[in-house]
Amino acid sequence: MLEFAATNGGPVLFFQQLELGITLGAMYALVALGYTLVYGIIELINFAHGDVFMWSTVVLLLVSNALGLKGTLGGFALIGVLILFLAIGMAVSAFLNVSIERLAYRRLRKAPRLAPLIAAVGVSFILENIAQLTIGSGFIAFPPIFPTTALNIFGVKISILHIFIFGLAVGLMYALDRFIQTTKLGRAMRATAQDPEAAALMGVNVNRTIFMAFLIGGALAGAAGLCYNLVIAQVNFFTGFKFGLIAFTAAVFGGIGNVYGAVAGGFAIGIIYALSIQYFNFLPGGGVAWVDAIVFGILVLTLVFRPSGILGQQVPDKV
């Protein structure tokens, strides 16, 4: 796992943990977007989403083995491999997510809401078990292809890898924002999210917008899978479960159904995660032992006190 606790004290320590938190947050945000996009359109919590993310990490491990990658790459080789991995990771997760919708959720569209939810849990088990059959149950190291170079700014080490991940995540989020805000299909998705029946009356093919939500959500989770392999570098069939739950917490914290909320929530949870590890270190067992309780405590508190999340809907629907 990562070296979580920094060694220096004071503000340097704080900013070091912050740098880590932003990196984790970028990954949580990418996965949280998948929960929120799907929830926004069909009000389904896609509990298989974490495993869709996990499958990107697994396939990328298999590809890196097939390519015989072992050590650090540089120059064009690194750029080429990153582009290839990004394309494969996004394609795998997008395809998987879309297939799940087509095979499992679509036929439950008119069923009581609990039915697709249980189906999602079932799909999650299936994906985890197939992954376990494929790579076994152990933790497998992902080759450290990315150089470990870091910038040193007043003693705070800012790794090039973390900058890359932040840039990639922000780039994808910007692309998503432009897609949703300015394209016709994006507008149709927003309309469907607000009122599916009214959207259908405008001529929107609702099945197509649902397909797009799963496609985009999956692709973003696939990109997060690449980031995860580069940062955490441990591939395991069960990774998606907890990572997915934390990303789901981020989506709820930010305001589920709101894409900006998912981004804000993702970064917030990532930063809270990294800081908690450090600053709750005085607790028995250390901060690492408590961080999950803290994150899921935030989930509970959000659901109790502000279920619409920090960026919940501001404009009420007038009846």
């Binding site: 016709k184 149709a188 009214a198 959207a199 009356l201 809907q313 007038k318």
Partner: peptide, 21 residues
């Protein structure tokens, strides 16, 4: 539709563009 059902979180122009979808 009954009850207007405008897209409340979209601008007037965006609503009209949806009408011309």
């Amino acid at each position: 539709p009954e009850g207007r059902r405008v897209f409340s979180r979209m601008s007037v122009r965006e609503n009209l563009e949806m009408g011309a979808y």
